[in-house]
């Protein structure tokens, strides 16, 4: 019970910090501008404008979510160590893992709030151009939340270990690799005897499988989405995030605060 109180105190303060961060407001504004731009593009394009807006809109919400996750996430722990604001906090009866978990919950909640806000704006845009809100669109929005949450966990993990620049670089590399993880699987299937196959298999397992969370195509083209397509990625997201947070906590457990 005491652990919960402490974790929620850290989470609450981190949430406040993130929500009051100007980067977040700027990125939200940027997302709105991009939705407007997708409206203009859809007007000039051949095809159904609501599909183009939905396609571009879903991509923008994930990208903005990931950019916030990376650039605000990589300074979450390291920034506090650098600014020494962490010293009076860790002088209190707080376990380091409680601190890491509280940071994650607070930050990911703030990112989630912004992410939901962006999706609501996207839905309003779609309603204005005459496109309805399909269940496929909502399912795609739901799963991409997990993609962003996973990037938040990765950014936090690197922030507990190394400097913000290296953390950002590592997170971006893993994000890109995660987006192409399906191609690794495809390559392994096509070339099973390849000399690099064992290494690629390890990379495939370690790298987050972000394509798992991508239902954009299904949402835009009204392809049915089964329950398994939602449940398995959700479980994968929960397990992957938990493992990443465990590594972050272990790495931070005995770290000297300079």
């Amino acid at each position: 019970m005491e652990s919960l109180t402490r974790i929620s105190a850290v989470a609450q303060t981190t949430f406040r910090e993130t929500i009051r961060n100007k980067i977040l407001h700027n990125m939200l504004g940027f997302a709105v501008v991009m939705f407007g731009l997708s409206w203009v593009i859809s007007a000039w394009s051949v095809g159904e404008p609501e599909k183009i807006i939905a396609d571009i809109g879903l991509t923008i919400t994930v990208l903005v979510g990931v950019i916030i996750a990376i650039f605000a996430g990589v300074v979450l722990v390291h920034g506090e160590v650098d600014r020494k604001t962490i010293l009076p906090i860790l002088a209190k009866p707080l376990h380091r893992w409680e601190y890491v978990l509280g940071k994650y919950i607070g930050f990911s909640s703030a990112v989630l709030l912004v992410y939901i806000g962006m999706n609501v704006i996207l839905i309003l845009f779609l309603s204005v151009v005459g496109g309805g809100v399909s269940s496929g669109l909502l399912k795609a929005m739901y799963l991409s939340i997990w993609e962003v949450e996973l990037v938040v966990a990765l950014a936090l993990m690197f922030s507990s270990i190394t400097t913000p620049w290296l953390s950002a670089l590592n997170t971006i590399i893993l994000f890109i690799a995660g987006r192409f993880s399906y191609d690794i699987k495809f390559f392994l299937g096509a070339h099973p005897g390849n000399a690099f196959a064992p290494v690629l298999k390890i990379i495939y397992v370690l790298v987050p499988n972000l394509s798992y969370f991508n239902l954009r195509h299904e949402a835009v083209h009204a392809i049915p989405v089964s329950a398994q397509m939602l449940i398995y990625p959700t479980l994968y997201g929960i397990i992957y995030c938990s493992l990443v947070l465990l590594i972050a906590s272990l790495a931070f457990r005995t770290k000297d605060l300079a």
Binding site: T13, R16, E17
Partner: peptide, 17 residues
């Protein structure tokens, strides 16, 4: 640390609070 109070050498606290 339950019965401890601590003041660091440089009073850096969260500016946003």
């Amino acid at each position: 640390r339950e019965r401890i109070g601590y003041l660091p050498d440089l009073p850096h606290f969260y500016q946003f609070l």
